[in-house]
Nucleic acid binder design. Structure first.
Lengths: 185, 185
DNA sequence: CCACACATGTAATATGTTACATGATTTA
DNA sequence: TAAATCATGTAACATATTACATGTGTGG
């Protein structure tokens, strides 16, 4: 029995290939562009993982004609494995929120710097919100995604809720930081 | 120049010690109990990091009298270093949200299992929300935290916003999953 | 033809968790 | 006094990023 070799990466990769066959390079682009807000994989994980998936017969590699690039597609066994992996309980990732760490010790950092951190966070959330809205219309209109669209929209909705919550929090936080900078008369 | 040796861990540890001196064991408990929702460190990081901080004169270790346990306290230089570290831009952590990964490929997993995942997420958010409310009254009333309280409350508020957003999203998602299970007549 | 994106892979490094070993202190 | 908790540390393992090496295809 081989070591789990990051089942999480396998799940993401098999999932990407369950949509359509593609190169390893494209798998990474796909994950970055569509799952980017809640998942990430680097080349250093993707290529070894693809090699192992191939050894285990979960994906197949075909040379595109007249090209050096290999197109990976998921096998029947790969689909079965993907469903197994998805059915496992999501392992809670250890949180590492640099913004919150800084604000928690904000008394050391001072209100000015904290204010700037919150402004940055709000800006980023606003950008995320716009990207989510773009992704929403994309997912709704792509005819290749009729099966997957309702589920993908669930994740987009989560991103929107999260971004809006961040913006609302940031506005409250900025008001409170102003009170700290200019203490009550 | 020594390798960065995870500046992030140093920040969290120096921050904890900036509140009050304590043992390495207590540092970990403190981080888990008060920063737990957005930060985590394991013993395997804390003890080596404390040893290096000591070598660099950023913390000092004193033996508690009649005891084998060492009490670490932050030095003047440690405070300076902490402020430097806090002033650095928070490095965005690569997201790995197992719930979203599963929902994204929910078409493979099926609506039933997705529904259960969302129910679990909602339950967890409700639990978080209660813990945040408890933390809020604790932080407001602890006389040792008068300086830090306004900043700590900022992070608690963020946790509350986030948890409420998750609950609202989950309710929407559950409604949409019901539609999928019982298709329109 | 030059720059850039596509494509694959490995090695070095960094980061992080878990299990283990060890023993003191506290509490039931 | 037995069990649980406090306390420190290390080693083995697991995970992940980055830089590098290498080459192909494509558009200006």
């Amino acid at each position: 029995m081989t070591v789990p070799r990051s089942e999480q990466s396998q799940t993401a990769i098999l999932g990407a290939l369950s949509i359509t066959p593609m190169t390893g390079y494209a798998v990474r682009e796909e994950i970055r562009d569509t799952l980017g807000h809640f998942w990430s994989e680097s080349f250093g994980q993707i290529y070894p993982a693809l090699a192992e998936l191939e050894r285990n017969g979960l994906v197949e590699r075909r040379q595109a004609e007249g090209s050096r690039s290999g197109i990976f597609s998921i096998t029947r066994a790969g689909i079965v494995r993907l469903r197994e992996l998805l059915a496992e309980a999501p392992q809670p990732s250890k949180p590492r929120n640099g913004l919150m760490l800084r604000l928690f010790f904000g008394a050391q950092l001072g209100p000015e710097a904290c204010r700037q951190l919150v402004l940055d966070a709000r800006e980023q959330a606003e950008s995320t919100l716009m990207q989510m809205e773009a992704a929403r219309s994309e997912a709704s209109h792509d005819p290749g995604l009729v099966q997957a669209a309702p589920y993908i929209l669930l994740t987009i909705s989560a991103g929107e809720h999260s971004a809006r919550a961040t913006i609302a929090w940031a506005n409250e936080a900025l008001a409170q930081l102003s009170d700290l900078e200019a203490p009550r008369l």
